[in-house]
Amino acid sequence: MSYDRYVAVCRPLHYTVGMHSHLCLQLVAVAWCCGFLNSFVMCPQTMHLSRCGRREVDHFLCEMPALIAMSCEDTMLVEALAFVLGVALLLVPLSLILISYGMITVAVLRIKSAAGRKKAFNTCSSHLTVVILFYGTIIYMYLQPANTSQDQGKFLTLFYCLVTPTLNPFIYTLRNKDVKWAMRKVLGKDRSLLDAGRH
Rank of each mutant, 00 (worst) to 15 (best):
176 N>C: 13
145 P>L: 02
188 G>I: 02
73 E>P: 04
71 S>T: 07
119 K>I: 03
159 F>A: 13
2 S>C: 15
42 M>C: 08
57 V>T: 08
66 A>I: 01
16 T>A: 12
145 P>S: 08
97 I>D: 08
91 L>R: 01
99 I>T: 07
135 Y>H: 02
182 A>V: 11
69 A>H: 14
162 L>N: 12
35 G>D: 03
117 R>F: 00
12 P>S: 14
171 I>Q: 05
136 G>T: 02
37 L>R: 02
46 T>L: 06
188 G>F: 02
49 L>E: 00
182 A>H: 10
29 A>P: 04
30 V>S: 05
55 R>V: 15
35 G>Q: 08
40 F>W: 06
168 N>Y: 14
16 T>W: 08
144 Q>P: 00
1 M>I: 09
105 T>P: 00
8 A>V: 02
87 V>W: 07
100 S>K: 08
18 G>F: 09
22 H>I: 11
193 L>H: 07
142 Y>A: 04
82 A>M: 15
115 A>R: 11
42 M>L: 15
196 A>R: 04
115 A>F: 04
23 L>F: 14
91 L>N: 03
106 V>I: 15
37 L>F: 15
146 A>K: 12
80 A>Y: 10
81 L>V: 12
193 L>T: 03
82 A>C: 09
89 L>W: 06
180 K>L: 12
86 G>H: 00
181 W>I: 11
36 F>R: 06
186 V>A: 14
141 M>C: 06
150 Q>V: 15
28 V>I: 10
193 L>P: 00
82 A>I: 02
61 L>M: 11
198 R>V: 09
34 C>F: 07
68 I>P: 03
45 Q>T: 03
90 L>G: 03
182 A>E: 09
5 R>T: 06
28 V>A: 12
185 K>E: 05
131 V>R: 07
38 N>G: 06
120 A>Y: 08
96 L>Y: 01
76 M>K: 09
100 S>V: 01
65 P>V: 00
109 L>D: 10
83 F>G: 02
142 Y>M: 08
48 H>W: 05
152 Q>K: 13
67 L>R: 11
68 I>D: 03
33 C>Y: 07
116 G>C: 01
33 C>P: 00
113 S>F: 00
197 G>R: 14
184 R>D: 06
191 R>H: 05
194 L>R: 12
135 Y>W: 01
166 T>K: 03
128 L>H: 08
69 A>N: 09
33 C>D: 03
47 M>I: 05
35 G>S: 09
105 T>Q: 10
156 L>T: 11
133 L>R: 01
178 D>H: 13
72 C>F: 07
31 A>I: 04
20 H>F: 07
140 Y>N: 03
87 V>P: 06
74 D>Q: 08
149 S>D: 07
89 L>T: 11
97 I>E: 01
28 V>W: 10
91 L>K: 03
33 C>S: 13
